[in-house]
Amino acid sequence: MLLTKTYLKDLTYKINGAAIEVHKELGPGLLESVYHKCMKTELTLRGISFKSELKVKINFKGNELETDYRCDLLVEDCIVLELKAQDNLPPIHQAQILTYMKLLKKPKGILFNFHCINLYNEGQKTFVNEYFSLLDD
């Protein structure tokens, strides 16, 4: 697989479709862990590979350190997914996904908040970083 902006756009579309399907089936009001399990099932049904609860290591002054941080889902080894189920998402959650993207050296991330009426319009936010800008179209 050649990682390009077009590939990421197409994969984002597929991921959004999976998340919308989960939200359509369950609606808002459940725990984050339920949405996580259902997202794993939906991605699997759609043939999309992922890693769940991936440990995020930190390189500090040349030392690779184990941490207790875990990325909810890393899809196709290129898009970080962070799942939430909260009334409001404070800015720290955006900082969290951007940090995971940086530490994992991944070009794109999607933050889903399943505690909303319309997931596509109000429950998802997509992020890109400097790794994205280095990709070909």
Rank of each mutant, 00 (worst) to 15 (best):
H115C: 13
D10Q: 06
K57A: 13
G47R: 02
V80N: 06
K37E: 10
G47E: 03
C116R: 11
F60T: 00
A19C: 09
K37Y: 03
S133V: 06
L119W: 02
M39T: 08
N118L: 08
K5G: 05
E76S: 09
P28N: 12
I92R: 15
C71A: 04
K125P: 07
G17N: 05
D87F: 08
L3K: 03
L45Q: 07
F112Y: 15
Y131K: 06
L135M: 11
Q96E: 14
N63W: 02
E53D: 06
V128Y: 05
I92K: 15
E42H: 13
L134E: 09
I97C: 00
K55I: 04
L81P: 09
I58W: 00
L54V: 11
H115T: 04
D136N: 05
K24G: 00
D72V: 07
Y35D: 08
Q94K: 10
I110K: 12
F114W: 12
I48R: 01
E76T: 15
L135P: 14
L8H: 15
S133W: 09
Y7I: 13
V34A: 13
L43G: 03
Y120S: 11
K5T: 00
P91F: 02
N113K: 01
L119M: 05
A18T: 04
T12P: 08
L111Q: 12
L134C: 09
L135T: 05
L103H: 04
N113H: 00
I79Q: 09
T44L: 06
T67A: 12
K57W: 09
L89H: 08
F114K: 07
N88D: 11
D72K: 13
K105G: 03
L81I: 13
N118K: 02
M101N: 09
L26R: 05
L119F: 01
V75S: 15
K40P: 01
V128P: 00
Y100R: 03
V34Y: 05
Y13P: 02
L119A: 01
L73P: 07
K9Q: 04
E66Q: 11
I110Q: 04
P107Q: 00
E21P: 06
I79E: 02
A19M: 13
L111D: 07
